[in-house]
């Protein structure tokens, strides 16, 4: 009797056990990025750039060459790889502290140069790894360990809308905000990620996908409550949608 494999680990993921908390969306995003790498057949050319944050171990999880970047600098590191080896496919995987706070300059300029790289941006509105401090993306009123009385616009400013800022830069070839809270959303997110890679592969420009993501541990919610919080609160502040698509129909 012949067997058909219906579900397996993507080749572009190693067999290392993921270090993410239960209910964290980092794991889902890793899986769909790896599936895209498999489907595009780009494992050998790909270099993943891991950030500093909960996904600091991304280098160990993706079965492609990898570099561990300093906090916020992944787009600069990716630029260095791509300029040295234009035949490579380079992607950064960054949290919102990494990309939207300390690394704001690097992401804006990589996007504006139309750097032929791809960025997966995990927006969970908080600093995960360091224990739940406020991020530039934290919601108004959100209680974090460094905004214990709730984020106050007068004191801490407003939630930063990175995709809305970046969409104005001419170098962007693909930009979409997605979520992975339901199977339908996962399918949509995967399509977006594939296009963000195609923007690079087809030499069109910079591609980024912002993924609204949960952090049950630091939100102080269980995994199911976290999905409700994401759907009710995060999506209100950060509406899902396509901002830029110069990739067109996928071949």
């Amino acid at each position: 009797m012949s067997k058909t494999i219906l579900f397996k680990r993507p080749d572009a993921l190693t067999d290392r056990e993921l270090t993410y908390c239960p209910g964290c969306h980092h794991g889902i995003v890793h899986r769909i990025v790896a599936e895209v790498i498999d489907e595009l057949g780009i494992r050998d050319e790909t270099v993943n750039i891991a950030p500093v944050g909960c996904s600091v171990f991304a280098n160990d999880f993706f079965d492609t060459h990898g570099i561990g970047a300093a906090h916020g600098r992944a787009p600069a590191v990716a630029t260095g790889v791509k300029r040295a080896r234009p035949d490579s496919i380079v992607f950064t995987y960054q949290g919102d502290g990494d990309l939207a706070a300390i690394g704001t300059a690097e992401i804006v300029h990589a996007a504006n140069r139309g750097e032929r790289i791809t960025t997966i941006f995990i927006n969970n509105a908080i600093y995960g790894m360091t224990g739940g401090q406020m991020a530039p993306t934290s919601l108004l009123g959100m209680k974090t360990t460094t905004s214990p009385y709730g984020r106050d616009a007068r004191r801490e400013g407003y939630p930063l809308h990175v995709s809305e800022l970046l969409k104005e830069t001419a170098g962007i070839a693909y930009l979409e905000r997605v979520a992975v809270s339901s199977p339908q959303e996962v399918i949509k997110a995967k399509k977006a990620i594939k296009k963000a890679f195609l923007a690079q592969i087809n030499d069109i420009g910079f591609g980024m996908v912002e993924v609204l993501s949960t952090c049950p541990t630091n939100w102080g919610l269980d995994p199911v409550e976290s999905i409700s919080y994401l759907n009710d609160k995060l999506k209100k502040e950060y509406p899902l949608g396509l901002f830029v698509d110069k990739v067109g129909d996928m071949k």
Binding site: R73, A76, G80, R83, A84, A105
Partner: peptide, 24 residues
Amino acid sequence: GTFLQSESEVSAVNMIYGAAATGT
């Protein structure tokens, strides 16, 4: 060759880090 004016010295050194990792 390739010359790139970075947005800062912080970016420059990290570009070097990425490029050097390729053995260039």
